[in-house]
Amino acid sequence: MDLTKYRQKLIGSEEERAVSPVIGVILMVAITVILAAVIAAFVLDIGDDLGDSSVNAAVTVDEDGTDVTVTVSDMGDADGVVLTDDDGQIIGESEVLTTTGTSNTHSLTSGDGYIVYAYIGSTTTASSFSDTESLESQVDTLTAVSEGEV
């Protein structure tokens, strides 16, 4: 009984046998590259800041009795800075601060809380904001940069 004929059918010729290891190596390299890319994406936090970024602005808040003075030290990436009460309503006819170095002083009632917000959005005047809608719904991105109570 001659088994060489069956051996060639099962194992293949010398030329055919080399194909399987080459494909195996290519697949292993591809899997390693994909795995490295996924791990790098998690470690380097790539793609995490898609829309959920905060607004950066530097402000100084000075309290003198019931007067609160908000001064913009650096606008960062903010389009405006505004002073609101605890409910998010703009205090008085507060001017929206839109440039570095500008400031506003507002008189509050003793015991009132306030929040200074930096925002990204096209609204640049206090009168453009609606009293019936929340401040957050009127701007693209909103971040509280300071808060306190007089």
Score class of each variant (00 low, 15 high):
Lys5Asn: 14
Tyr6Met: 15
Gly88Asn: 00
Glu93Arg: 09
Thr143Ala: 12
Thr123Trp: 00
Asp2Tyr: 03
Asp49Trp: 13
Asp79Leu: 09
Ile26Met: 06
Lys5Glu: 14
Leu35Tyr: 08
Asp52Glu: 12
Thr98His: 06
Asp79Arg: 15
Asp2Leu: 03
Asp86Cys: 01
Leu83Ser: 04
Thr84Lys: 05
Ile120Ala: 13
Val22Gly: 04
Ser20Arg: 15
Tyr117Phe: 07
Met1Asn: 06
Ala78Ser: 10
Thr105Arg: 11
Leu44Lys: 02
Thr109Glu: 09
Ser137Gly: 03
Met28Thr: 08
Tyr119Gly: 03
Leu135Ile: 06
Thr60Tyr: 02
Gly88Leu: 04
Glu95Gly: 02
Ala36Arg: 02
Ile120Cys: 10
Val43Asn: 09
Arg17Gly: 02
Ile90Thr: 05
Ala57Lys: 01
Asp77Pro: 15
Thr4Ala: 07
Glu93Pro: 11
Gly51Cys: 14
Leu83Phe: 03
Ile120Leu: 11
Ile11Gly: 00
Phe42Ile: 06
Asp140Glu: 12
Leu97Gln: 11
Val150Pro: 07
Thr84Ala: 09
Thr125Ser: 10
Thr66Lys: 07
Thr71Ile: 10
Thr123His: 00
Leu50Ala: 07
Val70Ile: 07
Gly113Thr: 00
Tyr114Gln: 04
Thr132Trp: 09
Ile34Tyr: 09
Tyr119Ile: 13
Val70Trp: 06
Gly111Leu: 01
Gly92Phe: 08
Thr99Glu: 09
Tyr6Thr: 14
Asp48Leu: 15
Ser134Pro: 02
Ser73Phe: 03
Glu16Arg: 13
Tyr117His: 04
Tyr119Gln: 07
Ile26Val: 10
Tyr119Met: 10
Glu147Asp: 05
Gly24Asn: 13
Gly148Ala: 10
Asn56Ile: 08
Gln138Asn: 05
Leu50Gln: 03
Val139Cys: 15
Leu3Glu: 08
Ser107Glu: 13
Asp77Trp: 08
Glu16Gln: 13
Asp74Phe: 13
Ser107Gly: 14
Gly51Tyr: 15
Ile115Thr: 06
Val33His: 00
Lys9Trp: 13
Phe42Tyr: 04
Thr125His: 08
Val33Cys: 02
Val81Leu: 03
Asp45Gly: 12
Lys9Thr: 09
Leu50Glu: 07
Ala18Asn: 06
Met28Leu: 09
Thr109Ile: 08
Asp85Ser: 01
Leu135Met: 05
Ile11His: 05
Glu147Cys: 05
Gln89Leu: 12
Thr100Glu: 12
Arg17Leu: 11
Asp49Cys: 07
His106Gln: 13
Thr98Asn: 14
Ala144Arg: 08
Gly101Glu: 05
Ser146Asn: 10
Asp79Glu: 10
Thr125Met: 03
Thr102Ala: 08
Ser13Gln: 10
Thr71Asp: 02
Ala58Cys: 11
Glu14Val: 07
Asp85Leu: 06
Thr71Arg: 07
Lys9Ile: 15
Ile46Gln: 11
Tyr114Trp: 12
Val81Lys: 00
Leu135Gln: 06
Gly148Thr: 04
Leu97Pro: 15
Gln8Ser: 14
Ile90His: 04
Asp74Gly: 15
Thr32Trp: 02
Thr71Val: 01
Thr66Arg: 05
Val19Thr: 11
Glu16Thr: 09
Leu35Gly: 14
Ala18Met: 04
Ala126Ser: 02
Asp67His: 08
Gly111Cys: 02
Thr69Cys: 05
Ile115Ser: 13
Gly92Met: 11
His106Tyr: 12
